[in-house]
Amino acid sequence: MLRFLATRTLGAIVTLLVKSFVIFALIGLMPGDPLDMLSQSNPDATPEQIALLRQMYGVDQPIWERYVTWLSQALHGDFGYSRIQHRPVLGIVWQALGNTLVLTGLAFVISTAIALTLGSIAATRRRSWLDRGINLLAYLGISVPSFWLGLVLIYAFAVRLGWLPAGGMPRPEEGPAGWWMHLTLPLATLVLIEIGGLTRYTRSAMIEVLGQDYIRTARAKGLPAGRILLRHALRNAMIPVATVIALGFGFLFSGALLVENIFAWRGMGRLILEAIMGNDYNLALVCLLFTTAMILVANIIADLAYSWLDPRIGLGGRRGRR
């Protein structure tokens, strides 16, 4: 167990380093680096002055040298300043990360619970109208543009009905009620798009499991149907589903990015877009690194969950997935 965690963590750190370099290099290719800004604001700058500036900012060095410089500063906890917010990057990111985790965490828990329930119901009532209805809902979930679903919900519940705010963060004086009012629409949007794929996977995994011999044996032994479903079927169906859930973290994050921007929720997704659009190099870099790290952590957790669900799979033996 510890050994597994140690090797996986080591692997994740190596992966993160490789990816940080790729992201660093990509961001260097974005428009409007500090040099572009300076030479634009001062058109009279001579080539000599520009060369001096390049040297000052280290832009004349090869990309990997700049990366090593950045990395050694980052390892000392110095991730630089945000260009647009004029604050250390790390503080901004922590705050946004909290907001994102609230939104995605809740969406994850709720959508998983709903999808497992709907998928199981559809699998046990195959070809019924209930199954078809759930299937259609799932199809809509995987096919709808998340930002547009958010707009539709805003139109219905904020513009027409006026029940909920169209977006923004709750103010502290609004209390828990205001908090939930602001959270409901973004959360509902994320949940609706998340349950689509997961419901479909749960349904097909359950159908597969329900056809197995041991389920028929359990039925023949006269075990109560509910217990068979929960103890035997769902647990085994969860094994493939767990992989899909883990892969879904990246998807959840992409969904959150759009939803946060629609509903002006001050999380990582909104921050990433602001940073990229505002040419805020340091901020964009750190945001992406945090996101990548979170996906890697999620994958390790999924592997742990996997071996807990399926004791046949030892933690040492299985090759790391993705």
Binding site: T15, K19, L26, L247, G250, F251, F253, S254, L257, L258, I272, I276, C287, L288, T291, T292, I295, L296, N299, R322
Partner: peptide
């Protein structure tokens, strides 16, 4: 596969 797709 494990990259954050949309930000990228």
């Amino acid at each position: 596969i494990a990259l954050p797709t949309l930000p990228l």
